[in-house]
Design a binder for these strands. Structure first.
Length: 484
RNA sequence: GGCUGAUUGGUCAAGCGGUUAAGACGUCGCCCUCUCACGGCGAAAACAGGGGUUCGAUUCCCCUAUCAGCUGCCA
């Protein structure tokens, strides 16, 4: 039987990397097996629903290539399954009533006031409530009367108070809990919507989901879901619970912890493929030591049995490194297309942007890094004469002044300002005077850039700057050194 | 508090009874070099603690500690 998985987000905001990773793993598990992947929007909480959140999910899935295989018709393709839409068919209520008939669930008419009296303890500001099965004792007549009177109700699961329940997770093994620990959770809310707990089970079964893949935070409520499957007489799916992704403080990622949503990362200059690649490795590793994967390669190599069990810290430093690897591997045209806006944000003069882009390609990790490398092309920054002193190059203010004064006429006479020609000229000068390359190159590069570090050497910079600007900057350097 | 889970260098992570305990990021050093970066080479850096089981435990079991998640008419 083909594997069928689903990504089931609730539309409450941007997709952070934990959500994205769940979607990715669910996609990969299905695709590795030649199976099918579904998208199901879990919007049963009307209060937390955020306008536009479904679009964000949609955009993110499309951009990352996690395309679902099935769903209601939409724009000539497949839309997502949407729980609020499915609810209109009465599916959840139908199944809830089936459970009531079986004695596995019951109507509960308790109001908030009564529930409040059940609160037993306060731990870290959280009140602990365990429902006391009060309404389980209602007679058929009482229930009918309440219903007829239109009294608000919920439907609760009826869990036994003795014995144990066990379910199996592919990663964590058998997990057993005492039934007395199982609260009678609400299946249908008083607004008629199902809770996640219930809708999830009903949908996964009716959609023939074979592998339920979800975050670790559901591990402790899974026994309750297992009881639901058992109550219906349904075969339970294969469970794969994923370890949490945390921030650098080892706390569960949330919308406030940094800027770790997929769209935030894009805005910070990360590449989609690098993000997907990086998060694939956050909780999973291949048999070999490879780290760079395309989506297709992930599909081919992904074995969910190798998913780890312990939480992983989202490390933006390593993501930056990986992003840099992707940038270096890009072909130049694709790189230039993405780099151009960042170049133009800094450079307004008529300069050869492609040459500058090429200089910077191996030096950046994310696109916004470009700015700091190229600002000197636009205007010569003011700099200190100390910059002419470099121990390894054996240069200082005096030697630099001498070199620059000596070289100036040669550069003035030079017609060809291409990198190659300039380099030849300077190397010839170096050989003639018997000094080291750096002894000459350092002062020139300093003069034309005004910076300690540049994305290219002296001659490449002069090539881009052109003869007039290069000479002007060198003269300015001489002046600076003379006045020091 | 209760329940469940996790615990290999700062981070990701291999290992699935016997290893000099991989590799990557980061850090540091060296080489390359017209500076920096790229690239190459190298270094420092880990099995939470205590009991078992075993000829032998990072690997299996128990306890403790720590961390996390759940404990909602949220998912």
């Amino acid at each position: 039987m083909k594997i069928r998985t689903r990504y089931a987000p609730s539309p409450t905001g941007r997709m952070h990397v934990g959500n994205l990773r769940s979607a990715l793993y669910e996609f990969l598990i299905a695709k590795h097996d030649g199976g099918e992947f579904m998208l199901r929007i879990e919007d049963t909480d009307q209060e937390r629903f955020v306008e536009g959140a479904v679009d964000i999910i949609y955009r993110t899935m499309a951009k990352t290539g996690l395309i679902h295989d099935e769903g209601p018709d939409k724009d000539g393709g497949f839309g997502p399954y949407v729980q609020s839409e499915r609810m209109k068919t009465g599916i959840y209520m139908k199944y809830a009533k089936e459970l009531i008939d079986k004695g596995e669930a019951y109507y509960c008419f308790c109001d908030k006031e009564r529930l409040a009296t059940l609160k037993s303890e306060v731990v870290e500001g959280k009140e602990i409530t365990v429902y006391d099965k009060h309404c389980l004792g209602l007679s058929k007549e009482e229930i009918d009367a309440n219903l007829a009177a239109g009294k608000p109700y919920v439907i609760r699961q009826n869990n036994p108070q003795t014995g144990t329940t066990t379910f199996h997770d592919e990663l964590y093994g058998d997990i057993t809990v005492e039934n007395s620990e199982l609260d009678d959770m609400i299946l249908i809310k008083s607004d008629g919507y199902p809770t996640y707990n219930f809708a999830n089970v009903v949908d996964d079964h009716t959609m023939n989901i074979t592998h339920v893949v979800r975050g670790n935070e559901y591990l402790s409520s899974s026994p309750k879901y297992q009881r639901l499957y058992d109550a219906f007489g349904w075969q339970s799916p294969v469970y794969v619970h994923l370890p949490l992704i945390t921030d650098e403080n080892h706390k569960k990622l949330s919308k406030r912890s940094g800027h770790s949503s997929f769209e935030d990362l894009l805005e910070q200059g990360f590449i989609t493929e690098a993000i997907v690649n990086y998060i694939a490795l956050l909780g999973w590793s291949p048999e070999d030591n490879r780290e760079i994967f395309t989506l297709d390669e992930l599909i081919r190599d992904f074995d969910y049995h190798r998913i780890s069990k312990s939480p992983a810290v989202f490390d933006i430093v390593k993501l930056r490194w990986m992003n840099g690897e992707y940038i270096k591997a890009m072909d130049f045209d694709a790189f230039y297309q993405m780099a151009e806006p960042y170049l133009k944000a800094v450079l307004t003069k008529d300069l050869d942007l492609k040459k500058i882009a090429a200089m910077v390609k191996t030096r950046i990790e994310v696109f916004p890094d470009i700015a700091e490398h190229i600002d000197f092309f636009e205007t010569l920054p003011s700099y200190d004469v100390e910059m002419y002193t470099h121990k390894k190059m054996k240069t200082n203010s005096e030697t630099s002044l001498a070199v620059l004064q000596d070289i100036l006429p040669i550069l003035e006479a030079q017609e060809d300002y291409s990198n190659d020609a300039l380099y030849q000229t300077l190397v010839a000068y170096v050989e003639k005077t018997g000094v080291k390359n750096g002894y000459v190159m350092w002062p020139i590069r300093t003069a034309v850039s005004g910076k300690q570090m540049t994305p290219a050497g002296a001659t490449e910079i002069m090539e881009v700057l052109g003869k007039d600007e290069s000479l002007a900057r060198i003269r300015k350097g001489i002046e600076l050194l003379q006045n020091a």
